[in-house]
Design a protein around this nucleic acid. Structure first.
Length: 304
DNA sequence: AGAAGGACCTGCACGC
DNA sequence: TGCGTGCAGGTCCTTC
């Protein structure tokens, strides 16, 4: 289940492997349309683009693209004295000029892994995994593959300004802004943490773990928490996410190369998945309830 | 508008 | 062994 740390690790791994590469062609499975942007539009728009960088925004992997037009312009502007001929060849507009084919130039490819999505960078002769929904063929000969058994993942083109995601980044939001997110809200703090429009990147596991570390009962109404407790929650959340990113970064560096999951990082869970087991702090039994439709784990003594 | 709940989707663990 | 059932959860959509 990729949450922020996993997505960050994967984005970094993909970045190292395909930055600067060029998309030659794109293939999409016909097995139902699993994408936000139509597969036909993706297939038409992606080839010819160069990968400038890959990074994370919330739980999204963002592939910054440089269109063929951009690359030509760059090359021309770098070339010294321009003669009249090269100027004459210059295209006046950014968009593709092929008549009748209006393909917008994408600036970014947005990937959401959903629950089971994987991005793999492989050699072309590596057998295709089941549930492979997209393959980008790169100029280097390698392939970027999108595999997603449960098909909760999404691909989309972003042609507008830089993708910023739906909510605030938990790693950079200021404590006052963090506190403001929950003001007046009656829903449980756990449900609020999962709401990507408020804070993006936090999923079920890290919500439970950060609430435990902050000593806050997941059912507590978000708007009723004191500023001090919210400050503590933000600190716990950041500590958990940072620790996970560090561990993920070291233990899963091959993730995108290999056949996937092997050794995916797990933080030392203190409550998640530990129903009935003793709390690592006080020894009380960890309880599991369903909150916001999600299994929720907490220590009834440590979390108030 | 905010909140709650179901749908989507497949693999896996479990019980009979 | 094999089948049915329930569970996992990120996000979208509908309903209240």
């Amino acid at each position: 289940m990729p949450e922020l740390p996993e997505v960050e690790t994967i984005a970094n791994g993909v970045d190292r492997r395909i930055r600067g590469d060029r998309i030659v062609s794109a293939w999409f499975s016909k097995h139902k349309e699993p994408f936000k942007t139509a597969a036909s539009a993706l297939a038409a728009a992606l080839p010819g683009n160069r990968v400038r960088a890959v990074h994370r925004v919330g739980k999204h992997i963002v592939v910054d693209l440089e269109s063929a037009g951009d690359q030509n312009r760059k090359a021309r502007s770098e070339a010294r004295p321009r003669d009249a001929k090269s100027l004459a060849l210059e295209s006046p507009r950014r968009e593709a000029r092929t008549p009748g084919r209006l393909v917008p130039e994408p600036s970014q490819l947005i990937v959401h892994l959903g629950m089971t999505g994987r991005l793999l960078v492989t050699a072309p002769d590596v057998p295709q995994a089941p549930h492979t929904h997209a393959v980008l063929h790169l100029a280097s000969g390698r392939e970027l593959r999108f595999v997603d058994p449960r098909r909760f993942g999404r691909l989309a083109l972003n042609t507008a300004e830089a993708f910023a995601g739906p909510g605030h980044e938990p790693l950079t939001i200021s404590p006052p802004d963090f506190a403001r997110l929950f003001r007046g809200r009656k829903l449980a703090i756990k449900a609020a943490l999962l709401n990507q429009k408020l804070l993006h990147g936090v999923g079920n596991i890290y919500a439970d773990e950060s609430l435990f570390r902050a000593g806050i009962r997941p059912t507590r109404p978000a708007g009723r928490l004191t500023r001090a407790r919210l400050d503590r929650l933000l600190k716990s959340l950041r500590a958990v996410l940072r620790a996970a990113i560090r561990a993920g970064g070291s233990s899963v560096s091959d993730y995108v190369d290999a056949d996937g999951e092997a050794g995916f990082f797990q933080i030392q869970h203190r409550v998640y998945g530990r129903e009935g087991q003793p709390c690592r702090v006080c020894g009380n039994q960890i309880r599991r309830i369903v909150l916001a439709g999600r299994s929720t784990h907490f220590c009834p003594r440590c979390q108030t």
